[in-house]
């Protein structure tokens, strides 16, 4: 039918539409708005598998990657000596205006005249649902299919910095020298792929704050720490739903 003829047609109204047709139409609409998809498209409904009180650590055996690289930060052991930062800069040639990992500092009032200092190491969380990957227009940043590391393909990066805005953890910076966004990749190119077992930061830490490992290995220290009964484990900014792979505990 030609569009010009469509205009000349008479409006049939909805009374004549069979019930089945209506139902199909509504179903289609609901599918598009995400009601049938557990809210994952437009988030009009809550996430179907959300479970309060269970904590951020996935149940044993429910890790999507193999090896599933992860890091646990034993936060209250951090003394901000910044040897991790120095090791990272040396290993990954990080310029002084950027960082792949850094230490945040927070003063916490614990009494009338008493404060404590909390040092919080931060780095890329290698999220299972990384917002940075989702927004990258050229797929320059991607989730490695095998080990889950959020990688950068700097040849594809156009420097639009959308990933920097999307990252909930401020874990990315624009590297002027390579004209691309740079970030932590768990030292994959500089250490892991060369047979090293630890990232540079984890190896340099004198207080064993950063425990790096493979979550699918149930005998690993990393696995043991975050699955210890009664231990409180937390992640940063869980409300973003990014499912981060950097866990925090107090030792």
């Amino acid at each position: 039918m030609k569009i010009s003829k469509l205009e000349q047609m008479e409006n049939e109204g909805v009374d004549g539409v069979p019930l089945e047709e209506r139902r199909k139409f509504l179903k289609f609409g609901l599918a598009v708005t995400g009601v049938f998809l557990g809210g994952s498209v437009l988030s009009l409904t809550s996430v179907r598998n959300a479970s309060g009180g269970a904590g951020p650590v996935p149940e044993a055996g429910k890790f999507p990657y193999r090896p599933h690289y992860s890091m646990v930060i034993r936060q209250n052991r951090c003394i901000d000596c910044e040897r991790c930062k120095e090791a990272c800069v040396r290993t990954n040639h990080v310029p002084e205006y950027g960082f792949r990992t850094t230490i945040l500092e927070r003063r916490h009032v614990i009494g009338p005249d008493e404060e404590e200092t909390i040092f919080m190491p931060v780095l890329c969380n290698h999220c299972n649902r990384p917002p940075c990957v989702r927004v990258c227009p050229t797929t320059a940043t991607y989730k490695d299919k095998k080990n889950g590391i959020v990688m950068m393909d700097i040849k594809k990066c156009i420097g639009c910095k959308t990933c920097m805005a999307a990252c909930p953890y401020n874990a990315r910076y624009f590297n002027e020298e390579i004209r691309a966004v740079d970030k932590c990749n768990f030292c994959f190119d500089t250490r892991l792929s060369r047979g090293e077992k630890l990232t540079a930061c984890a190896a340099a830490c004198p207080a064993h704050v950063r425990v790096f490992g493979d979550l699918t290995d149930t005998s690993s220290e990393l696995y043991q720490i975050i699955h210890a009964p009664e231990r409180t484990v937390w992640v940063l900014r869980p409300e973003t739903g990014a499912l981060p792979n950097v866990y925090y505990v107090n030792a």
Binding site: I79, D80, C81, I103, E105, T117, F119
Partner: peptide, 12 residues
């Protein structure tokens, strides 16, 4: 215990 009472770090 109480590491950061004496350890002021690079920032300190």
């Amino acid at each position: 215990t109480r590491c950061t009472l004496c350890h002021i770090g690079v920032k300190g």
